[in-house]
């Protein structure tokens, strides 16, 4: 072992493997140890890094005559030495097989969807047509919060949720309803801090009322299966179920409190 590690070929292979482990796994798991977020690298970047490392290694083994000769020697031996017949045969068989496999792997049809960018929370319009009326979404508050009994509204919302929503969004509001696995995009989890907790109630109202068909372009390219509930529910029904969602998920809606200032763009 020690002998191999002193040989340029052995050293090169060691460095190569170490570099691969570092790039493939080190980058994913090491930064979190010191509290920095990380993620796996795309294969295109891994390939790019590995090629750079390989080129670097080749330069290293060949920039000195002695090292170069030593580096080539085992390969040369495998190719010509009569005693290395087995190794030679394995090599000559394995190399084309490897190439064949890589080629196959690259051209084989896959079900992977084309690369696309989907915005999960596309920006809402300023106003919508709701059942023939125009509703201004900007600054819109949930009218039920200032009217009637909160408990009654929650009770009503719960009833509506279990009649209409539970099949997809699930019992625990975690997006794990019975049908959820069949959809792309999957139904949202309301437990997630990234969903309704980030939105004003008016945005949630817009999403419920208009559903998948009302998503703007950037919400594509996959059609959300969410129905446009304005065809089935009344305005108060929707506001009630929204109250229920926030209550049950334990989030509070984003408010209009930080009223938009006068900056913004041209």
């Amino acid at each position: 072992m020690g002998k191999h590690l002193r040989h340029p070929l052995g050293q090169s292979v060691t460095v190569l493997v170490a570099a691969y482990l570092l790039i493939k796994f080190g980058i994913v798991y090491l930064p979190p140890l010191i509290g920095i977020a990380s993620a796996p690298l795309p294969s295109s970047v891994v390939l790019q890094y590995m090629i750079t490392v390989i080129v670097g290694l080749l330069l290293w083994v060949s920039d000195n005559e002695e090292r170069w000769a030593k580096f080539k020697q085992p390969m040369h031996r495998v190719m010509v030495d009569p005693e290395q017949k087995v190794a030679r045969a394995v090599l000559l068989l394995a190399t084309p097989l490897l190439v064949a496999f890589v080629t196959f792997d690259r051209v084989r049809p896959s079900v992977a969807a084309p690369v696309s960018f989907r915005s999960i929370h596309p920006a809402p319009p300023g106003q919508i047509d709701f059942q023939g009326r125009t509703l201004r979404l900007t600054g819109l508050e949930n009218p039920l919060r200032s009217r009637g009994s909160e408990d009654e509204h929650l009770e009503e919302g719960k009833r509506i949720y279990y009649q209409n929503c539970v099949a997809c969004h699930g019992d625990g509001l975690a997006g794990l309803g019975h049908y959820s696995q069949g959809f792309n995009p999957v139904p949202l989890s309301f437990q997630d801090v990234g969903t309704i907790a980030q939105l004003t109630e008016s945005v949630v109202f817009w999403r419920i009322a208009k559903g998948g068909p009302g998503l703007p372009n950037e919400g594509g390219p996959w059609n959300s299966a969410m129905p446009a509930w304005e065809d089935f529910l009344s305005e108060d029904d929707i506001w009630a179920v929204i109250m229920f969602l926030y209550e049950q998920a334990g989030h509070s809606p984003r408010t209009w409190g930080e009223e938009p200032g006068e900056e913004g763009g041209h």
């Binding site: 915005s119 596309p122 920006a123 319009p125 300023g126 900007t138 950037e218 930080e258 938009p260 200032g261 006068e262 900056e263 913004g264 763009g265 041209h266």
Partner: peptide
């Protein structure tokens, strides 16, 4: 400034 979605909470450009 972002023109298509939202800019610092002020809404889309049309708004």
């Amino acid at each position: 400034p972002n023109l298509l979605t939202d800019e610092a909470g002020t809404g889309q450009i049309g708004v």
